[in-house]
């Protein structure tokens, strides 16, 4: 009534100004947190800004980052058999796969993943029957060209870094 809301608003912003200095994990004069930053609870007061290049959240297990290949611990290679299920499942033709060998010996020779068109829908992973691909935890990819692709080796390295062992383990789909 009669500007009470305006005064209340001023009080709220003043409280936030003060609490950004005095409470929260980054209270003055400390500015950066070390190590992976825990995701804050909704009730946390104070400064919550993630100062990205210097601090990073740990992504949650079901985060859909870029597609990675999982390494078969026995052979050290990808489990991909170039069965083309993922290529058929992909709505945008992001994947290009060539294989070599016949029958049980068949393996992926090249596996090209065009990042610029991918919408991270995970249909390729759903279709994979050989425990070969999964969505990883990486999201930092930029380029100065329109065609940004990842090849098999890069995707295998990303898979090693993500620490995922089997397709769908975070989704409770591992049998």
């Amino acid at each position: 009534m009669l500007g009470r809301g305006m005064l209340k608003g001023l009080w709220v912003t003043l409280q936030h100004t003060i609490s950004s200095f005095t409470s929260g994990p980054r209270r003055f004069p400390k500015r950066y947190l070390d190590g992976p930053v825990p995701r804050p609870e909704p009730s946390t007061q104070g400064m919550l800004t993630l100062q990205y290049p210097f601090e990073k959240y740990e992504m949650w297990p079901r985060f859909r980052g870029v597609l990675v290949h999982l390494r078969d611990p026995e052979t050290g290679q990808s489990r991909c058999t170039a069965c083309m299920a993922c290529v058929r499942a992909c709505p945008h033709g992001v994947l290009t796969v060539t294989g070599e060998g016949k029958g049980r010996e068949r393996r992926a020779k090249t596996y090209t993943y065009e990042l610029g068109r991918c919408i991270f829908c995970r249909l390729c992973v759903e279709s994979c029957r050989f425990d070969a691909i999964e969505m990883g935890q990486e999201y930092e990819f930029v380029s100065t060209t329109q065609d940004q692709t990842l090849n098999l080796e890069e995707m295998l390295a990303l898979g090693d870094r993500s620490g995922i062992k089997h397709t769908g383990e975070a989704w409770g789909q591992v049998e």
Partner: peptide, 13 residues
């Protein structure tokens, strides 16, 4: 800085 602090941000730092 004042705008940022009022919104729980850092502002240019």
């Amino acid at each position: 800085k004042v705008l940022a602090r009022g919104q729980d941000r850092f502002g240019p730092n």
